[in-house]
Design a protein around this nucleic acid. Structure first.
Length: 422
DNA sequence: TCTGGGGTCCTAGGACCC
DNA sequence: TCTGGGGTCCTAGGACCC
């Protein structure tokens, strides 16, 4: 059966989430900032129209923001994660198979669908809007890459009303003419530049480029993209969830940090977050990597370093990871620097079920540790994140991130559910 | 004053083995 | 003087994604 993919993509997702819970924000320029209120990571069409740039620093755009009364929010990932689940659950009803590709995107498998695909797309779109409040755009095509292209057209051309089907279009060539090569899924800045140097500027030119040229300059990955542009699918729909092979937890600090004690707290906090992520996917890790770095945007002495610490047995037990992270920090901490960021990554991740006994048949206390963690996760799930935590994480957290414009956790915390006044 | 935080895959080259 | 040929594993770096 001929594959047909639909790519459903939420429009300016984080900003849309904020609009759902605050009707005053509808039809207004709204933006959402990255952690630490650093960069713009989402903007509504209205914000784009007044010239707000994506991924650019917030402080550089403050003038524009004041002038156009742009509404600004700190990132509220708890809210976005929950809204994402609602959107995905809604989408699931429209296709036998679905791949959740990112927090705001999913591929649907529409192979074998009989009827008008674009019409079906519009039905999906209006249902998601009605059930979750989130606007989406939908691209439909014979390969994932072409579904992505169609999605761009759906977003760009207002007359498509948010849905575009590129399958069996006799004018596919002209449509691809209007897609810049750098806007193709899989073609980043570097490849776009390289292709431009060789006279390839749009999707049609890339589609028609010789295999040998593509293979030589862009490896097999590039060749896959080109094949997909030709309408021959080679990236399959992947509907099983894979365990992450690496898990990272890192943050920039709200202020420069000099004291070792503060770094120890921060690193403990990140190790604890990494442990939680491991437990959520029922995995254990045996390597813990710690890194610290100064602020490269500022003058002054710069330092960055990382250390890797192996644990005796794979673990997801928070104190094990905190201990390893502190060992790593011991190795790389140098006094006298203004640190801006630190992080903890874990690797050599294995499923928890495969845990081995040591040579003496002991389980290293795994059973006890597991019940402690289960209890802690249960309390935190119910009462709110970090209600129970380790003292090493610190209680004052003066290094914590700036989030001046945080919305409430409308959907995941009983105390913050919106109320309607009669 | 203020510049995010995650992930994946592929390739080339070196170490090492037989 | 002649100076093999494969294979595997690991790592660093480069590209991409959201």
């Amino acid at each position: 059966m001929r594959p047909i993919f639909a790519l459903v993509d939420c429009n300016s997702f984080y900003a849309s989430c904020e609009q759902v819970f605050d009707p005053r924000m509808r039809d207004r320029p709204v933006i959402v900032l990255s952690n630490n209120d650093g960069c713009v990571i989402a903007r509504t069409a209205e914000a784009k129209a007044v010239g707000i740039k994506m991924a650019e620093p917030f402080f550089e755009q403050e003038e524009l923001i004041l002038k156009h009364d742009v509404q600004v929010f700190s990132a509220n990932f708890t809210l976005y994660g929950d809204m994402s689940n609602r959107v995905m659950e809604t989408l699931r009803q429209f296709a036998p198979r679905m791949e959740v590709y990112s927090i705001d995107e999913a591929f649907l498998d529409l192979a074998g669908f009989r009827g008008d695909l674009a019409e079906y797309g519009r039905k999906i779109r209006s249902t998601v809007r009605r059930w979750t409040g989130i606007p989406v755009s939908i691209g439909i095509g014979p390969s994932k890459t072409l579904a992505k292209v169609a999605n761009r057209i759906a977003k760009r051309d207002a007359e498509q009303r948010g849905v575009f089907d590129i399958t069996d279009r006799p004018d596919a060539g002209e449509l691809l003419d209007r897609i810049e090569v750098g806007d193709i899924w899989g073609i980043g800045r570097r490849y776009a530049k390289l292709l431009n140097r060789h006279g390839i500027y749009n999707a049609r030119q890339l589609r028609d480029a010789p295999d040998k040229f593509v293979r030589q300059h862009m490896t097999v990955m590039g060749l896959r993209t080109v094949t997909e542009l030709r309408g021959e699918p080679c990236i399959r729909l992947d509907d099983v969830t894979h365990d992450k092979k690496n898990l990272m937890s890192s943050r920039s600090f709200g202020r420069p940090v000099r004291e070792r004690a503060d770094l120890e707290q921060a690193v403990a906090e990140y190790a604890s977050l990494a442990s939680e992520k491991l437990r959520r996917q029922q995995s254990l890790a045996s390597l813990v990597h710690v890194f610290v770095e100064t602020d490269s945007f500022r003058d002054g002495p710069q330092y960055r370093n990382f250390a890797t610490v192996g644990m005796a047995m794979p673990s997801s037990y928070t104190p094990d990871l905190i201990r390893a992270a502190h060992q790593g920090l011991d190795r790389i901490f140098r006094p006298g620097f203004d640190y801006k960021k630190a992080g903890v990554m874990v690797s050599e991740v294995v499923p928890a079920a495969t845990v081995q006994l040591d040579a003496f048949g002991r389980d290293g206390g795994v059973t006890v540790k597991r019940s402690v963690m289960r209890a802690m996760d249960a309390v935190n799930a119910r009462m709110g994140r970090n209600k129970v935590f380790y003292a090493a994480q610190g209680t004052d957290k003066t290094w914590g991130m700036r989030q001046k414009r945080l919305s409430k956790r409308f959907t995941t915390d009983w105390d913050q559910i919106p109320t309607v006044k009669a």
